[in-house]
Amino acid sequence: MTETLDDLDIRILEVLQQDVTIPVTELAEQLGSSKSVCWRRIQRLLDNGVIKERVAILDQKKIGLGVTVFAQVKMHHHVKGALPDFVEAVRKCPQVIECHTLMGSVDFLLKIVVGDIEEYERFFWQELSQIEGVQEISSSTALTRFVDTTRLPLEQLYQNNNQSNKKTS
C-alpha cells in the first residue's frame, strides 16, 4: 500500500535522504515547522515503514570492496518453489546487495560487491552456480559509476500532490 505523503512529509524525507543525523530542532528550523510536528512526522514515517532504515552509506572502494558485478541469472524451470528457493539462497550471500526478479528471458538480476575479480570467481563457482535450479549466469563487471545515490526522486511526489490538490479544488 502506498503511503499518502503531504508536502511537509516530502520535505522531511528530502532532508533526511541527505543527512539522517540532522537534529530534529535543526530540521524543524530548516523547514519552518515545529520540533514536535517534525518529530511526530518522522515517527509516523518510521512506524509505517516509509523510512525503512537509518544507515551509514560506505565508500566501497575505500574499504576494499572495489568490484561491482551485475549477474543475470536464468533458472532451469519455474516449478513451484524454485524461484523463492533461489531468493532465499541469495539472501544468505553477503556479497549480493540487491536481487531483482525480472520479466523477460532472464529471471533475476543480482548486484554483487566483492574485493576483486578473483573473489567474484570464487563466489561464482562455489556459491552462485551451485544454487539448485540455476541454468545460466551472465556476469558484467561495472567499470565506472557515473551515478551513485540512494536518494529517491521525491520531486515527482510534489507534482502528484499539486495535481491531486487541483482535482479536489
Score class of each variant (00 low, 15 high):
residue 13 L to P: 09
residue 14 E to T: 02
residue 15 V to H: 09
residue 16 L to V: 06
residue 17 Q to T: 03
residue 17 Q to W: 04
residue 17 Q to C: 06
residue 19 D to M: 06
residue 22 I to Q: 10
residue 23 P to R: 14
residue 23 P to E: 13
residue 25 T to F: 11
residue 26 E to T: 12
residue 27 L to R: 01
residue 28 A to K: 01
residue 28 A to Q: 07
residue 31 L to T: 02
residue 33 S to C: 05
residue 33 S to R: 04
residue 34 S to D: 08
residue 34 S to V: 03
residue 36 S to K: 07
residue 37 V to C: 04
residue 38 C to A: 11
residue 40 R to N: 06
residue 41 R to P: 04
residue 43 Q to N: 15
residue 44 R to C: 01
residue 44 R to L: 07
residue 46 L to Q: 14
residue 47 D to H: 07
residue 49 G to Q: 00
residue 51 I to R: 00
residue 51 I to H: 05
residue 51 I to C: 06
residue 52 K to L: 12
residue 53 E to Y: 04
residue 55 V to G: 04
residue 56 A to S: 08
residue 57 I to A: 12
residue 58 L to A: 13
residue 60 Q to C: 02
residue 61 K to N: 10
residue 62 K to W: 00
residue 63 I to G: 06
residue 65 L to P: 04
residue 65 L to T: 03
residue 66 G to Q: 02
residue 66 G to V: 04
residue 67 V to P: 00
residue 68 T to V: 07
residue 69 V to P: 01
residue 70 F to P: 00
residue 70 F to R: 08
residue 72 Q to C: 02
residue 74 K to N: 05
residue 79 V to P: 00
residue 80 K to I: 04
residue 80 K to M: 05
residue 81 G to V: 09
residue 84 P to K: 11
residue 85 D to Q: 15
residue 86 F to R: 05
residue 87 V to P: 07
residue 88 E to R: 12
residue 88 E to M: 09
residue 88 E to Q: 12
residue 88 E to S: 12
residue 89 A to Y: 08
residue 89 A to M: 11
residue 92 K to I: 00
residue 93 C to L: 15
residue 94 P to C: 05
residue 94 P to N: 11
residue 96 V to F: 03
residue 98 E to I: 01
residue 98 E to M: 07
residue 98 E to N: 05
residue 98 E to F: 03
residue 98 E to R: 12
residue 101 T to G: 11
residue 102 L to A: 06
residue 103 M to R: 08
residue 103 M to D: 11
residue 105 S to Q: 15
residue 107 D to C: 09
residue 107 D to W: 00
residue 107 D to L: 10
residue 108 F to Y: 11
residue 109 L to C: 10
residue 110 L to M: 03
residue 110 L to N: 05
residue 111 K to R: 14
residue 115 G to C: 07
residue 115 G to A: 14
residue 117 I to Q: 08
residue 117 I to K: 09
residue 118 E to Q: 15
residue 120 Y to G: 06
residue 122 R to L: 10
residue 123 F to W: 08
residue 123 F to K: 00
residue 125 W to C: 04
residue 126 Q to G: 10
residue 127 E to P: 02
residue 128 L to R: 01
residue 128 L to A: 03
residue 129 S to N: 10
residue 129 S to M: 06
residue 129 S to C: 07
residue 130 Q to L: 09
residue 131 I to Y: 08
residue 133 G to F: 09
residue 134 V to Y: 00
residue 135 Q to I: 08
residue 135 Q to D: 15
residue 135 Q to T: 11
residue 136 E to I: 08
residue 137 I to H: 00
residue 138 S to N: 13
residue 138 S to L: 11
residue 138 S to R: 15
residue 138 S to H: 11
residue 139 S to F: 04
residue 141 T to L: 14
residue 142 A to I: 09
residue 142 A to G: 09
residue 144 T to N: 13
residue 144 T to W: 15
residue 146 F to T: 12
residue 153 P to G: 05
residue 153 P to R: 12
residue 155 E to L: 09
residue 156 Q to C: 07
residue 157 L to K: 13
residue 157 L to D: 09
residue 158 Y to W: 08
residue 158 Y to N: 05
residue 159 Q to K: 14
residue 160 N to V: 14
